[in-house]
Design a binder for these strands. Sequence first.
RNA 1: UGGGUCGGCAAGACGGUCGCGUUGCUCCUCACGGAGUACCGAGGAACGUCCGGGCUCCACAGGGCAGGACGGUGGGUAACACCCACCCGGGGCAACCCGCGAGAAAGUGCAACAGAAAGCAAACCGCCUCCCGGCAUGAUUUUCGGAUCGUGCAGGGCGGUAAGGGUGAAACGGUGGUGUAAGAGACCACCAGCGAUUCGUGUGAGCGAGUCGGCUAGGUAAACCUCGUCCGGAGCAAGGUCAGACAGGGAACGCUACGGGCUGCUCGCCUAGUUUCCGGGUAGACCGCUAGAGGUGUGCGGCAACGUACAUCGUAGAUAGAUGGCCGUCGAUGGUACUUCGGUACCGGGACAGAACCCGGCGUAACAGCCGGCCCAUUCA
Length: 113
Amino acid sequence: MLAKANRLVRANDYRNAVRRGSHFSAANSVVYIALRDDSSPVRFGFIVAKTVGGAVIRNRVRRRLKAIGYELITRVDPGTDVVIRALPGAAETSWAVLRNEILGQVTRGGARK
RNA sequence: UGGGUCGGCAAGACGGUCGCGUUGCUCCUCACGGAGUACCGAGGAACGUCCGGGCUCCACAGGGCAGGACGGUGGGUAACACCCACCCGGGGCAACCCGCGAGAAAGUGCAACAGAAAGCAAACCGCCUCCCGGCAUGAUUUUCGGAUCGUGCAGGGCGGUAAGGGUGAAACGGUGGUGUAAGAGACCACCAGCGAUUCGUGUGAGCGAGUCGGCUAGGUAAACCUCGUCCGGAGCAAGGUCAGACAGGGAACGCUACGGGCUGCUCGCCUAGUUUCCGGGUAGACCGCUAGAGGUGUGCGGCAACGUACAUCGUAGAUAGAUGGCCGUCGAUGGUACUUCGGUACCGGGACAGAACCCGGCGUAACAGCCGGCCCAUUCA
């Protein structure tokens, strides 16, 4: 899970990441990565629309994404905002598949290690 | 034992590991904040947002209209469209279930198909009197052409009738008799129903018994409508404090307490002021924010819903939105195979669903269970 410091909470931050960041698509998700020019912690944001499922399903998807984000904290440079958008297929995807998918996208998008 | 019916319970369990949120404590920091630690951290429907309330702001003398909701009776409640008990009607052998339970003799409207006719009377078939002429036949009479009367058959006409037939969800009471040309509440008896009324009983809806009347008055109000009762509006993004941001403009009032300007006075105008509308900006922090018509237990009152007294408990508060991710063991029902019918092996792995100001209801969703009351049938005693 992610502490508040590692979360994106402002609508403006989301807007910046989605519009200006580079994005990487996969079967079940889209990852947006934007750099801020400072050394503040890595921040993650999640977008799970109603097309993914009902409230219970969306909650589970978001919690899984948060767990993946927790793994990524040490692998992404500080000052980076990462927004992960879940696509409708994410609800039926297994944990391992979803995790590899996100990790792959983040690696392509500029992970440090 | 089987079937039914009503109600209640519960909402997979245990562990490992890595985490999240509120609050308390300790430590660090000038401070924002950070670290550690402890406790607590989703549901029976948290859902839909369909009713009812609390709370907040706005409006409000009183009354009425419009609009909406409700509708057997009595009770419960903060309130309700909810709950309890009872009544009536319908279903069921029964336990029990069902009714969107006011008014159809205030008015307007509506009724497919079938049927003659669907609302205030009418008459398709049928039944009957009378009249008309025809045919057949009998009697009487005869001037032998016929005439008169009777009977029968088929037909036509003016009427009578609603017993019978047939249609329909529904056809203007039912059965029996008197009566009649045939019939008919035309009349009579009983029954059903209607109106009025008396007595008993119940808080009441009603129930039970009787008397009188006229003999019959259809359904539909989830059609308009009528009657009775209730209802101001918006919602926690309510509302408040602080910080921050932006751009003003129109209309009205009006010198009302004051000001400034055009000129000292008067008038007038502009500005300012007040009200209001449009436009623009913000959506950060804190409060509201969870102790409440609160839960549990016992006693008392009550058929019950519920009330009441005492004791006791402390129980989510997020805001891109915490309450979890991953892994392991066990695991109900289930599937497949084998079976000595006791089981064994393998597979699979839990429904519906996520708080957002708070309560009371209703409705909807849903897997497999567990427990109990009652009813019916069956077996045994």
